[in-house]
Design a protein around this nucleic acid. Sequence first.
RNA 1: GCUGUUGUAGCUCAGCGGUAGAGCACUUCCUUGGUAAGGAAGAGGUCGGCAGUUCAAUCCUGCUCAACAGCUCCA
Length: 650
Amino acid sequence: MIHITLPDGAVREYPEGTSAADVAKSISEGLARKVLAAEVNGEVWDSSRPINSDASLKLLTWDDKNAKSTFWHSSAHLMAEALETIYPGVKFGIGPAIETGFYYDIDLGDRTLGEDDLKKIEDKMKELAKANSTFKREDVAKAKAVAYFTEKGDQYKIELLEGLDDGTITFYTQGNFTDLCRGPHIPNTSFIKAVKLTNIAGAYWRGNEKNKMLTRIYGVTYPAQKELDEYLVLLEEAKKRDHRRLGKELELFTFSEKVGSGLPLWLPKGAMLRERLQQFLQKAQIETGYLPVITPHIGSKQLYVTSGHWEKYGKDSFRPITTPQEGEEFMLKPMNCPHHCEIYASSPRSYKDLPLRLAEFGTVYRYEQRGELHGLTRVRGFTQDDAHLFCMPQQVSAEFKKVIDLVLYVFETLGFTEYTAQVSLRDKDDRSKYIGSEENWQIAEQAIIDAANDKGLKTVIEYGEAAFYGPKLDFMVRDALGRKWQLGTIQVDYNLPERFELEYVDVDNTRKRPVMIHRAPFGSMERFIAVLLEHCGGNLPLWLTPLQVKVLPISDKYSEYAHSLVATMKEDDIRAEVDDRSEKIGRKIRDTELMKTPYMLIVGEKEMADNTVAVRKHGEGDKGTFSVNDFITEIRNTVKEQIKGKNRPY
RNA sequence: GCUGUUGUAGCUCAGCGGUAGAGCACUUCCUUGGUAAGGAAGAGGUCGGCAGUUCAAUCCUGCUCAACAGCUCCA
């Protein structure tokens, strides 16, 4: 007999070789029908796999993350079975579960798939799922496994087998399909009731662009049609929050083929939003000791040779521009750091001058690969909320923490509560691509880890993600469709001060090298606004929104009163407009709601007589009648509250 | 950059080998109204661009530009 410990602490006795499914059955039949997999001593297993010694056991049903992942992994196998039935001879790469759903990379030879094919595969999957095939696990000797896939002619599986040790190899079979797989899987295919193949795309074998491109089919499955429907609705909702769509609807920005791809054009409302955001950060920065500077949009190529960027990124940049006669070369500024280094170097610095914090909303140009461009999140011309802090080595830690405070203040004010902080360190093995001494790297890496811990950030450490000149702390958020984007960044740099031979005179009258910290709380104005739009679904906070109040006169007769209200509000820095079109009030309300304007003031005979306004709030409806002064006070207070923040660093 | 899909009016889209259509938006007129679309008339497109096939191309073919999805990349 063995002892099974359940999550509630209860210990039960079962015969050796009992399975999670058996345990479930002993508790209740209903539970047994829902169990998809099990966690045995913390490891996810097939529910049918025999347990041969004492163990802790958690039965996994659909609500569990690991169960979903198992379910989707099995669905990938089901899709593979369908593919093999429809396209005999198809070769398979890998087919894992992902955050939502699964994919399988396949090699179809010369055949290409279209939308109609996806439907066909879906139907076949549903048919095969109904066949109720069991997922059977089998230990296989390496030689036998290689022989199996050699006969099948699947070179990808053979390549995968090369990386595996004999004795650890397992096959899973359902119906007529057998795959090399570590498992685990759900008990049988009949659990899969709803199937949707969402997407078809190319993907390089093993993620290497030198390898063959395989066809990747993405899909998602559910144990009930209702859940699939809900998921599809959710996807639609997410699309409505897409910043590219909101940017168009709210008239914030646009692109022009003539101007060029990846070069956003800010429309008046977008520019207003962006400038307001910039002023907000500028103010916080000045309060916390930053000094604004301004540098040109181009710089001599020599500047980037000195910085090392030419060598590293020159070939991937916009080509240098040349002067008419001399043949001098200039580059469109791809980053502000070298310019700021030269500002530092423009006069002798004492330890008393440090830290020197130079800030600039600097527009830079980078030649991003064509396929990388994406709305405002990945563009070729963008403005960084950049600053470079030059400090003594012993000041790094304190400066770093101050920057974290500033970033958190920005996030809090703009309502970002969900983000991850990623500590990007060097690749553990390959250190050839990094500039700078081992010792400096270690100090910097430790300083970042300590500062993040000190501030209580939830961090993920990523090896190999550091910049070539130093480690960094990046703040990441997700967009409406689940894609991850980096927002704020803080980076320690021991390299540029070296290359630009920056110095300060220390207390003991010796010359020393300062340390540089690059930082951008927004990351870039473009990307930040993109993510902000998606975050708030286009309902921008009152203090930031281009138009705060729209005054809607009920008829032309009250137009004058409406305009007088706007003039009054303007005195209190409230951004308001009148909709004086000859439309019915219902129509004006609808149009204003669609533009997501926070407040509507409806004014007619009554309001004009009493010097009041009927307030309607976006998304909430009629709020009743207020005196003009009360309304103005309300707006002013709300705005004040929004930008104050509890964690204001100044 | 790679693979695939798409490109028709300002926007969302329909259509088709015989020189274009809807709704919304826009303009004008009527309507002067009370919390999410009042009515009528009008204007607007060399069907992304360049070639080719054809008696004839928005439609077929090639190239090119752009957008979208994913992969690779991201100072």
